[in-house]
């Protein structure tokens, strides 16, 4: 019985790896410039020509960023849904996207963006995200130590509302170009030209994945509820705090670099729970990889649906993710049960 479960997991991981490979190749071959699979092999050897520049400077960074952000957001969603034990929680419920978007809005409206250059947006976005995390964290500290999960949720939601109202205020007093720029950033984009930022996103995503595995036993225990986990000897307050920090950091970095890409962190954890169950030993890596595949596919769609124009990726993930979610909910396979 035990073996069949581990076998199922290995098979699942194998399939996911193959799908990931396929997604990466697809993403590298799709675009305005015709580059087929055999071309890719040839270009990697010769390293010359405008097609190589397009492959390495445009398509590869995009694919890598989609991999990192999709994985980070899905992992964050899985972690948070495990801690909050609430199937509607996603990385942005804590207000991180609101804080980051507000920071970016201020940056554009005050003209800082034009003076400091394109690097200002991710930096200010991350600052806004961090500020939000601090608020949520410190407003939720219980008198006896540890964090109140209830209060974290409510504070996060409230900060989201405040941030979005503040943003609408900024948009109402500024020029049409600024509004366009703000909205475009909010809708999400994976075409980040700064290679350093992409590296940061990848490193942080992997760091998040690896560090969350140090708490996989505690996370599994938390599935029974905070009290029962404590009775099992788990230090729940430390676990909750660390998981919260990990999830916030990887979400904050992802939002700063790629904008607000919604639904990935909500839908993929549910999908994983449906396919392999709630055991965190498999769902952490599973959600990371499936999230990456999902976002790479969405990015391909964003680039091809109205080519040569490009759709913002948040549009695709929202519609695709939302439709998938509704289909999954309305079918007989209710995921809420499997949260335990």
């Amino acid at each position: 019985m035990k073996n069949s479960r581990y076998l199922k997991w290995c098979f699942f991981l194998l399939v996911v790896f193959i799908l990931l490979l396929g997604a990466v190749v697809l993403s590298l071959s799709v675009g305005d410039m015709k580059i087929s699979f055999s071309d890719i092999i040839r270009l990697l050897k010769t390293k010359e020509g405008i097609e190589y520049a397009v492959l390495v400077n445009l398509r590869l960074p995009r694919t890598i960023l989609a991999f990192a952000v999709g994985g980070a957001l899905s992992l964050s969603g899985t972690l948070l849904q495990g801690v909050y034990r609430n199937p509607l929680v996603e990385p942005y419920t804590m207000g991180i996207s609101g804080g980051a978007a507000f920071g970016v809005a201020i940056c554009i409206v005050t003209g800082l963006y034009l003076k400091a250059g394109a690097i200002a947006l991710p930096v200010v976005g991350f600052a806004g995200a961090l500020l939000t995390v601090f608020f949520v964290y410190f407003l939720s500290i219980k008198r006896q130590g540890g964090l109140s999960i209830h209060r974290m949720l409510l504070t996060g939601v409230m900060i989201s509302f405040i941030a979005s109202s503040a943003m609408m205020f900024l948009m109402s007093i500024t020029s049409a170009e600024d509004v366009h720029g703000i909205i475009f950033w909010i809708m999400g984009s994976l075409s980040e030209p700064n290679a350093g930022l992409i590296k940061i996103a990848v490193v942080v995503a992997f760091a998040g994945l690896i560090s969350s595995y140090f708490f996989v036993i505690q996370l599994n225990a938390l599935r029974l509820g905070e009290t029962k986990a404590q009775h099992l000897g788990i230090n729940t307050s430390v676990t909750i705090r660390v998981i919260f920090v990990i999830a916030s950091l990887i979400t904050g970095i992802s939002v700063s670099v790629a904008g607000v890409i919604g639904f990935v962190g909500l839908v993929v954890p549910h999908l994983i729970r449906y396919i392999v169950g709630s055991d965190f030993r498999i769902s952490l890596i599973g959600s990371f990889l499936v999230g990456s595949i999902f976002l790479i596919f969405c990015d391909v769609l964003a680039r091809t649906l109205i080519a040569p124009n490009e759709l913002p990726i948040g549009v695709i993930t929202g519609i695709a993710g939302g439709v998938m979610f509704i289909i999954a909910l309305s079918s007989n396979f209710s995921n809420a049960k499997s949260l335990r």
Partner: peptide, 10 residues
């Protein structure tokens, strides 16, 4: 008017 960088390079 929103085009991708690849469109311009092509």
């Amino acid at each position: 008017g929103t085009v991708s960088r690849e469109f311009v390079i092509t």
